[in-house]
Every structure is written in C-alpha cells, then in structure tokens.
Simulated assay, not measured.
Amino acid sequence: MKLTQDVVQGGLFLAIGMAALLMGLDYPLGTPGRMGPGFFPIMISALLALTGIGILLRARLGMSELIRLARSMPLFIVSGAIIAFGFLLDKLGLPLAVLLLCIGAATASVRFEWSWKAVAGAAVFSIVCGILFVTLLGLPIPLVGSWLPVLGAP
C-alpha cells in the first residue's frame, strides 16, 4: 500500500481509537440504561477506530493523493519553536517564552521578514498572554523566569 493521505489519516485514527479503547477498558462499562464511566469513552474510541478502518479501506480501494514532503522544514521549525517554548517557560517566564515562540514559528513562513511591526505585534501579544493567563486566570506560570533577576531585588 502506498503512503497516501488516506493511509496516514486512517492509520492515525485507528491508532488513537485503539489506544483510547484500551484505556477505556479500565473503567466499568455499565449498560445503555445505566452507563458507567467507561461507556462513553469506549463507544467514541470504537467509532474512531472504525472510522480509521473505513478510511484505510477507502485508501486501498480508491485513489487518494500521495503525500508530498516538498516543504518539511516548516514542520521542524514550528515543532522546534513549541519544544523550545516548553523548555524556556520556567526559565524566562511566560511573556518572553511566548515572544520567542511567535518569532520562532514565524520564521517558518516563506513570507517572513524582520520588521519592527512584526516584533512589536509579537511583544504586545506576549504581554497580553501574560496578563490574561497569569494575572486574570491565575495560572501558576511565572511572569519572570528563574534565569532573569527579579527587578528591584538586592
């Protein structure tokens, strides 16, 4: 079987559905009239796995488009920016980590150009994220990370 979009999508649906189904089997199923905590996850994951099987059958019987890896570098750049965000969040704080994430992910675009407007927009977005998530929602994420000295500290 050739590696087509349907094969990848069907395989992904089947794998996620089967993994969720196996996890759902740890919970009591119950009956349709008196559902247990595992009833809904098992039914949804079984439907997802069946959808994956259906897509794989369509890939086997029909003609779906082959996957082209012509531009795989943006995938690695954006993934790297997200991983760097995860590692730098505690070290730099939320606003600086978001700023680096925005700028890093933006470099994946073929239309990316350094400009003060883009950096200013990313800076404003990172400040808004800090205010929204830390101040207003109260998430336990540092605004200033451990790598940065706290302003006004002796």
Rank of each mutant, 00 (worst) to 15 (best):
L25R: 14
L14T: 10
G30K: 00
L14I: 05
M73E: 15
P28D: 13
P41S: 12
L137Y: 08
M73W: 15
L3Q: 06
A105G: 15
I42H: 00
W116H: 10
C102S: 13
I82G: 10
L88A: 14
E113L: 01
I131D: 01
A108D: 13
L132N: 02
L101C: 04
P32D: 11
C102F: 11
F85L: 08
A122I: 04
K117G: 03
E113H: 09
L66P: 07
F76C: 14
L21C: 04
S115H: 09
G130P: 00
A118E: 11
A106F: 04
I16D: 03
A70G: 15
G10Q: 00
M63W: 07
A123P: 03
A120R: 09
G54V: 10
G86D: 08
L56A: 02
F13D: 01
S146W: 00
D6L: 13
M18I: 15
I127T: 05
L69P: 03
A20T: 11
K2G: 03
G104L: 05
D26Q: 12
A123Q: 08
L143T: 13
A118H: 10
I103S: 08
I53K: 00
S146I: 04
A108W: 00
V144Q: 04
I55N: 02
F39I: 14
L66F: 09
D90S: 12
G17T: 09
L22Y: 07
G11M: 07
Q9H: 04
F39K: 08
L89Q: 07
S126V: 04
A59N: 03
L61Y: 11
L136F: 13
V144L: 06
K91F: 06
S64W: 05
L66K: 14
R111C: 02
L136T: 02
I83Y: 12
P95R: 00
G62P: 02
L75T: 15
M73Y: 11
L3E: 07
T51P: 01
K91N: 07
V150K: 10
P74A: 11
F133W: 04
L88E: 10
M63D: 15
Q9D: 00
A120L: 15
G80T: 01
W147D: 09
I131S: 03
D26Y: 06
F133C: 06
G121A: 09
G121D: 07
G36I: 15
L3Y: 01
V119W: 09
R111T: 10
